[in-house]
Amino acid sequence: MEMQETTTTRVNALIDPSLHIWHYEVPVYLFLGGLVAGLMVIAGLWMLRDPDSPRSRALQFLPWAAPVLISVGMLFLWLDLENPFNAFRFYFTFELTSPMSWGSWILLGVYPASILLAWASTPADTRDRWLARLARVPGLGRLDTWVSGHVPALAGLNVALGVALGVYTGVLLGTMAARPLWNSAILGPLFLVSGLSTGAAFMMLYRLDRREKEMLSRVDMGLISVELLLLALWMIGLAAGGAASRAGLHTIMGGPYTAAFWTLVVALGLLTPLIGEWIEHKHSAVPARLTAALVLIGGLALRWIIVYAGQHSGWVSDLASR
């Protein structure tokens, strides 16, 4: 009977017997980063398209979640580094071919953009109170004036940076030919859409007006639908790719991550909230927090499984390469 036996003497930690270099820190960051991207895009668009209509107080303060959550996300990212005290090296250079380099600069830009937008979104009375308390800080008053006069530009900047933030992590993973499960151009848009969806879901957790919640819910339904389509296209692309791509797909279609993917991501994290939101919409019910929570769980699960399963996927047997 034909047999093939391979041996290797290599037992490098984190590499053998199969790659496991990135653990929970990376999916957690991807989730938070995507969520913040969603917040920035939705808040920015909302401000651009509907600047004047009344808003709930929760909605007005929500944009402050962006800089807070991105900081938490970056903390996890920093914890993943093996040489964390060298992190400043990210900012000594800009590497054109490295999505991670783009990301480090995007993250740098996210701070001022999201903080200024959050400032612009904050109700005037709160802003005045804060200004009074921070009267000693020079230039703050001038900044406030400037912000008030440039809200559309700020909103546009937030949308742009949010899109960049949401898409670059997918591009980072998607351009790695070495990990066939990730190697797809769809991963960028997929992560962006998923991020927008989790951003909307995050906002729905708060005490927004019924009108606001319904709008977010309708947006989210659309996003989830697109996300399901993108997932399908991603998987079709892998199935129709070469042997390596097919082997990569196998990790979630028969392989070790199959159950987790189909239950946590697809069933629980996408289909259930989609159906839930549709039912709510049909019966004009208030969108429940549970639905939003499921979307968030699904978003984290999507990234978690993709990160872990992708490391599991590699190029097929070396013997076949002759």
């Binding site: 984190l14 060298n86 090296r89």
Partner: peptide, 26 residues
């Protein structure tokens, strides 16, 4: 001295030829 140990290069290598030196994190 420039390496932060982000490990993107390890993920990018189809040959799994790189690893993290635990003594330096690079």
């Amino acid at each position: 001295s420039k390496c932060t140990g982000c490990k993107a290069c390890i993920a990018a290598c189809p040959y799994d030829a790189r690893f993290i030196d635990p003594r330096t994190g690079a």
